[in-house]
């Protein structure tokens, strides 16, 4: 069960995104920012550093998202960082994305790949997952170089691993 505080922030972010228009765009922008925050420890520590003036940290957010994301997404990230919940931001965004998918009667499928998927690949992958599991999913791509090649899909507790990394690990195990 999700942390009530995380769930509360996620519900608030989704409500703001829905009030401002199409929430899926905001969800996608926040999802990508959360993945960047996960992969870059220095970014997370900078935004969580209360020794830095809030204006400085908000300026960092503006510099990162100002030209790449909507004003709503930038404002929501600034709000969470300003509230001192930078460490919980990835979990809040995950909950918000799941909340938005649920509002559309879908499930989030987190796809990790070394390279970004094209829109066509995302649609075909969503259709393939639907064919295999019977669930409508929204594909959220996470760029993960450790995958090397191929794709790893996580739907809830289910994992479909088709990465080159898994093949190498299997080869390593066969040597033992």
């Amino acid at each position: 069960m999700a942390d009530p505080r995380v769930a509360g922030y996620a519900e608030a972010l989704f409500a703001v995104a829905a009030a401002e228009g199409d929430p899926s765009v905001v969800e996608d922008e926040l999802f990508r920012f959360a993945q960047a925050l996960r992969s870059d420890d220095s970014l997370g520590s900078t935004l969580a550093d209360t020794g830095l003036p809030l204006a400085r940290r908000l300026q960092v957010i503006e510099d990162l998202l100002g030209s790449r994301a909507s004003a709503v997404s930038t404002a929501l990230v600034s709000m969470v960082v300003g509230a001192g919940r930078t460490a919980e931001l990835p979990a809040i965004v995950d909950a918000m994305v799941e909340r938005g998918a649920a509002s559309r009667n879908k499930t989030v499928a987190t796809v990790r790949s070394a390279v970004d998927l094209t829109a066509d690949q995302s649609e075909r992958l969503a259709a393939a997952i639907n064919t295999r599991t019977g669930r409508d999913v929204e594909v959220r791509v996470v760029i993960d170089p450790s995958v090397l090649g191929g794709v790893v899909t996580e739907i809830g507790d289910d994992i479909i691993d088709g990465s080159v990394r898994r093949r190498l690990n299997q080869l390593r195990e066969s040597f033992r």
Partner: peptide, 14 residues
């Protein structure tokens, strides 16, 4: 990479 992703999608779709 594209071929690997396509192959993966085909594998998931069966």
């Amino acid at each position: 990479q594209g071929r690997l992703i396509d192959a993966y999608i085909d594998e998931v779709a069966g």
